[in-house]
């Protein structure tokens, strides 16, 4: 009932609903970039948000690169939670890390997700939920690691959305998490503190 009442009141308030649909404009030119420029801008923007960005040449190097990065950041972990089949087969024993699978659990120290795309304009990662990348991995663990293929780093969000539309045929996964830095809050005394409810630190590995 309320549905019809509300829609009828809206239609009464909008007697001429024939106004032309809005033509969306492209992203601002100053935010656009492509290719190597986009990768560089992504890195700069992410680093400005406190994200550590690491380049690696071969996916196989990922476990060691992660081990080195964690050690440089004085972080210790025995286990890493991940579900992406493309990552499971990597030599994790090289890094003294054991894999745990499934959705994140309350006391997880470390989780690794794969991003579907990354956006240079703001240094943001796009994570699509699914069995390979449960969205809890991005929020429950103390430290979040994300891999992103260099070829999927685009200039603007419009390009990233186009990529999503192609991949998911206009039916998005349950959650698309656009992540631009670690969890933070300014709610106490106006000063920014990292690690409010989600990860205290975010590391990105460009492969």
């Amino acid at each position: 009932m309320s549905r019809y009442a509300i829609l009828a009141r809206i239609r009464a308030a909008n007697p001429n609903p024939q106004s032309p649909p809005h033509e969306a404009k492209p992203a601002p030119a100053s935010l656009a970039s492509t290719g190597a420029d986009a990768v560089l801008r992504f890195r700069t923007a992410a680093e400005a948000k406190g994200v550590t960005v690491v380049d690696i040449d071969h996916p196989a190097e990922l476990p060691l690169a992660i081990a080195r990065t964690l050690s440089a950041a004085n972080l210790r972990a025995d286990a890493i939670r991940l579900n992406d089949p493309a990552l499971i087969g990597l030599p994790w024993s090289d890094a003294n890390l054991t894999i745990t699978r499934g959705a994140a659990e309350p006391h997880d120290m470390l989780a690794l997700s794969s991003a579907v795309s990354a956006v240079a304009e703001t240094g943001s990662l796009l994570l699509a939920s699914g069995p390979d990348n449960p969205s809890s991995l991005a929020f429950l663990p103390e430290t979040h690691l994300v891999t992103i293929a260099r070829s999927t780093i685009v200039g603007t969000f419009e390009e990233a959305f186009a990529l999503l539309r192609t991949r998911y045929d206009n039916s998005l996964p349950r959650a698309v998490n656009i992540i631009s830095g670690a969890s933070r809050t300014g709610d106490i005394g106006g000063r920014i503190v990292q690690g409010a409810h989600g990860p205290r630190q975010l590391f990105v590995f460009i492969t």
Partner: peptide, 14 residues
């Protein structure tokens, strides 16, 4: 330029 988390939520779990 973007808050730390921007989330598109679409329906219940698949």
């Amino acid at each position: 330029d973007m808050t730390a988390y921007t989330t598109l939520a679409t329906g219940p779990r698949r």
